[in-house]
């Protein structure tokens, strides 16, 4: 995709929570311009992988390179400045701040005031509901709107790689569809995305490449359309 090489390359990382090893040698690549998705059951280590990329968890072993620069060991705020932005699991918007203030917070690492205002306008164009509610507190938004806000908040830092952690979590089916369409649109406009999802069918539909995680390891990887047809995947994740 896009003819680019690997934007993000994870090489054999191990991450532990105390004595429990959550990641036991995970390797994956995200190519520039594509949507890669990371599937797997609860506790497989999907979120841990994302948090390790973001620097919230430190890998005990292995290497993470972004734009051929080693980023493991950097603190989270420097990784954001490198151009990796996370939409955390459960949205985590700032509930007592307004939609506008949330978006401004997303631009925290940027110092070009004019550019931020411009990007705000384009975000309001893409997410009209956020413009409508820009002076409303984020905690008063519906789940789907909060998810949109969380995505918009991550986008406004102009990331080169967007990490999405379970964007469909707790949303009504119709909202899930809407969010996935938005994710696809974001990707079309040039952003590279690594998506963690439990809803495997939907994720594989919009993704280019897929990884399946099982107990801290990558159990399977392939082009998304191939995974969709894979018998084992169908049985386990797509409900037969």
């Amino acid at each position: 995709m896009g003819g680019g090489g690997a934007l993000l390359k994870i090489d054999n990382i191990h991450t532990s929570y105390g004595v429990i090893e959550a990641l036991k040698g995970v390797s994956l690549k995200v190519k520039e311009g594509e949507i890669a998705c990371l599937l797997g059951a609860n506790g497989a280590g999907k979120s841990t992988t994302l948090l390790t990329i973001c620097g919230v968890n430190k890998p005990t072993k292995g290497q993470i390179t972004f734009f051929s620069r080693t980023i493991n060991g950097l603190p989270p705020h420097e990784i954001v400045e490198e151009g990796i932005s996370l939409v955390p699991e459960g949205r985590r918007v700032f509930p007592m701040l307004t939609v506008y203030e949330n978006l401004r917070m997303g631009a925290f690492v940027r110092r070009d005031k004019m550019g931020i205002e411009e990007d705000l306008e384009s975000i309001y164009k893409n997410f009209p509901i956020l413009k409508e509610r820009k002076n409303q507190m984020a905690g008063t938004l519906s789940g789907g709107e909060q998810q949109m806000l969380a995505i918009a908040r991550a986008l406004i830092s102009r990331p080169r790689l967007l990490l999405l952690d379970e964007p469909s979590l707790g949303l009504a089916p119709i909202m899930v569809e809407k969010i996935f369409k938005i994710i696809k649109d974001i990707n079309k406009s040039g952003a590279t995305i690594l998506l963690v999802e439990q809803n495997a069918a939907l994720a594989l539909e919009i993704a280019d490449y897929g990884y399946v995680m099982e107990t801290g390891k990558i159990a399977m990887e392939d082009k998304a359309e191939k995974l969709l047809k894979n018998k084992k995947i169908k049985e386990i994740y797509l409900g037969g």
């Binding site: 989270p76 954001v80 955390p88 985590r92 401004r104 997303g106 925290f108 690492v109 830092s157």
Partner: peptide, 20 residues
């Protein structure tokens, strides 16, 4: 603003690139 973000949600603040 960074303080407010930390008060509201530390993990989200970290994800915004704030040096906690």
């Amino acid at each position: 603003r960074a303080w407010v973000a930390i008060r509201e949600d530390e993990i989200a603040a970290e994800a915004m690139g704030i040096n906690i």
